[in-house]
Simulated scan of single mutants.
Amino acid sequence: MASDPRYRASVRIDLDLVCAHPDDLLTGIDGSSRMSASTMDAEDALLSLLDVAVSPGADHLVRIESASTAVVDSEWEGTSGGVPAGSSDTARVARAGARLAGIDWALNELFGGATGDATASELRQRTIIKGLVWNASVMVVDCLFDDVLHLADASGDHSAWRDTHVISQLPPQYATHYDRGFAQKFLAATIEVTSRLSASPVYPPTVAHELALKLVLDEAERNADRLSGDLPEGWREHLDTVLFQDLDVDSLFAEQDAASKRDAAAATPPLDFASWFIPYAHAPAPAPYASDDLKEPAGR
């Protein structure tokens, strides 16, 4: 005898909630949950208060087999823009990510499409990745300002680059060029490449811009390792694939001899230090301060 037909559906429910202060959320949870409040943040407390259920009297018609909840985005009103102390590190990162719309296109393939078809968990992961990139952009630029001051104070000290925050992460075989003048130009390139991340998709126009973007993504990846939330596997590799035309700049970090440096200068586009601020052919013009006109634009 044939069984009764059944209808199965996956339902997405979006809720906009107005919540109390994090401290109030933590004191509002039940006694058993409060036992672990020392390790619980405000978002955990919020999710513990939510439940999905069918209407009373309809349980014989519909049975919920599984349900999951995740905070997609959050915004605190009545503050100066910061996130209250009761919030998790992940919430702080996600709050920053809400301001970075310029790489949404780059994340669509990673998450299988635009945000309209994403699950709550995927929306949250997307926002966290954007927050990691945003925070890394701010940190790298801020540290570069310190690097410029340090190199200015250590004029004539050819080893001063070793004590910098960001410049010391660049290929060491070119360290003899890392003085204040270079740091200022690299700072300009970094500001430009990070500003384009928050605006429209544009490939980095020079080797220096590519190096700056690489250092920003390196910082974002390091910060991701400190978060408790899971991110999709290969998210960094995916961003490398879509934000760069190629990854030739990685070869600059390999140990080079005189022959390999000549090869770098003869490459297309050239990767020798003299070409770092020369714009690629067909690339948008970089900021004047971060552009050299000593040679013709490099082909790419």
Rank of each mutant, 00 (worst) to 15 (best):
M1L: 14
A2W: 12
S3P: 01
R6D: 08
R8W: 10
A9N: 11
V11L: 07
V11P: 05
I13M: 06
L17Y: 01
A20K: 05
A20D: 13
T27F: 05
G28W: 06
M35E: 14
S36W: 07
D41H: 14
A42M: 05
A42H: 06
L50D: 04
L50M: 11
D51C: 15
V54H: 11
D59Q: 08
L61D: 11
V62P: 04
V62W: 11
S66D: 08
S66H: 07
V72G: 10
E77Y: 10
A85C: 13
A91N: 06
R92Y: 03
V93G: 00
A94E: 09
L100I: 07
I103Q: 09
I103W: 08
D104N: 07
W105T: 02
L107V: 01
E109G: 02
F111P: 00
G113P: 09
T115A: 14
D117P: 04
E122G: 07
R126I: 00
W134R: 15
W134N: 12
V138C: 11
V141F: 02
D147I: 10
D147S: 12
V148T: 01
L149G: 12
H150F: 08
D153W: 14
S155G: 04
G156N: 03
H158C: 11
W161K: 06
R162C: 11
V166R: 05
V166Q: 08
P172N: 09
A175L: 07
A175G: 09
H177Q: 06
H177P: 05
G181I: 06
K185E: 02
A189I: 04
T194F: 03
A199F: 10
P201K: 00
Y203P: 00
T206P: 05
A208K: 02
A208I: 01
A208F: 04
L211P: 04
K214S: 06
V216K: 05
V216W: 04
D218E: 02
E221W: 10
D225Q: 15
L227N: 00
D230R: 08
D230N: 10
L231G: 06
T241W: 01
V242D: 02
D246Y: 08
L247M: 13
V249K: 02
D250P: 04
Q256A: 04
A265R: 15
A267Y: 05
P270N: 11
P270C: 07
F273V: 10
F277D: 09
I278A: 11
P279M: 01
Y280V: 03
A283C: 12
A283P: 11
A285C: 02
D293K: 14
K295P: 09
K295T: 15
E296R: 03
E296N: 02
